[in-house]
Write a protein that binds this DNA or RNA. Sequence first.
DNA 1: TTATACTGAACGAGCGTTCAGTCGGCGGGG
DNA 2: CCCCGCCGACTGAACGCTCGTTCAGTATAA
Lengths: 212, 212
Amino acid sequence: MPVVVKQIETVVKDRALIARRHEQICEAALLHFARKGYHQTSVREIAEAAHLSVGALYTYIKSKEDILLLVYHRIFSLFREKMSEAMAKSGDPAGQLRAAIEATLKLYDEYHDLILVLYQESHTLRREALQQLFEVDRRYVSMLQAIIERGNREGQFAAQDPNLTAIVILFLCAVWPLKRWNLKKYDLATVTDSVLGLVFNGIGGSHGLRDN
Amino acid sequence: MPVVVKQIETVVKDRALIARRHEQICEAALLHFARKGYHQTSVREIAEAAHLSVGALYTYIKSKEDILLLVYHRIFSLFREKMSEAMAKSGDPAGQLRAAIEATLKLYDEYHDLILVLYQESHTLRREALQQLFEVDRRYVSMLQAIIERGNREGQFAAQDPNLTAIVILFLCAVWPLKRWNLKKYDLATVTDSVLGLVFNGIGGSHGLRDN
DNA sequence: TTATACTGAACGAGCGTTCAGTCGGCGGGG
DNA sequence: CCCCGCCGACTGAACGCTCGTTCAGTATAA
């Protein structure tokens, strides 16, 4: 569902048109960002890929940075949606954690170029935009943290610091998009198994995780 | 020890001077790259920070990208040195793995801004330079991989795919520099403990998680 | 006629890069 | 011993180019 980013002031009035154009711009930008990065793609290129003139583009954004914001907001809304639905499944903490990790990896797989841009270009954002990004990250961490804490209470887990563990596990999922170039010979399922193996058993044991 | 990067052609003749200047440039560049990234720091800024004029700077490099290469080569030689000495210690695979992870995290701590630049600006490099980077990465992975394979043979570890596991573990160490902003309240020792805990025992703690 | 969406040439700033020129120390001829 | 010329190291104004951004103008539909 298209989302109008309210922080971005526009000249055009029609709300539906704004949303449609923002989506066009987002997709066009992502196409280039993933290949060349933010700084090496020009506004002209984005405009062309979005089937707009430079002038028209600038009636939907105030500056180039707005395009990056647009892309980031797309990530956020996407993840909010997908993650919370993945978490709501199994009641067992171990099952929930497994589902969360699987969902995250699947998302990272589907939007790997987006994640790459997220990690590589975050330092480009202004303080205000960065705070927003941190906030979203914190929310995902606390989702995982809640699961881990429950697992600890029920004796399934023994994590010393649930917050730290949540951060580390979430980061671990980013291997797939960030180290893609040297994971070429593996597929999503294999990497998922490896990550789940490490999280649940460490390096010492593999007790047949995928038993379905 | 200063290292002359032979790939970079220079106008100046004196080898020792080149090495000294390259080190100056490296440090100056890193200072700015860490704060603003590669694209947002100008050659003028780097020259000033290195106490050189723009013209003098260009007698030690051929283009701006050379500066990034210089920085990368610094990382490589540093890591080659430190890692191999850390690996050569204990004979026990578990002890070796632990030493390797601890050494990596300590290095990542000391040069966290360098690592950040490495991850954020790698897409700026030309194909040739990228291949070099990959090669170095592969070497570190295979160091870890060898340890894991030995641990498997001796029954201490049970990693299904040692190569994949090595990649994942090495990546895991990058939480510390890459997620620094939301690990502010933790210190190196705590994060090291957490990473070691996850690698050796998983989330289930020392007793380990049995099948569901 | 007017409001709205759009066009693309033009602008100015900043960038990476170059080069004509300066400086200082060293060596050999007077 | 001095002086001159040379050469290696350095200087920074200038150049050309690309970029983000703007705006006078066009098109269309109401």
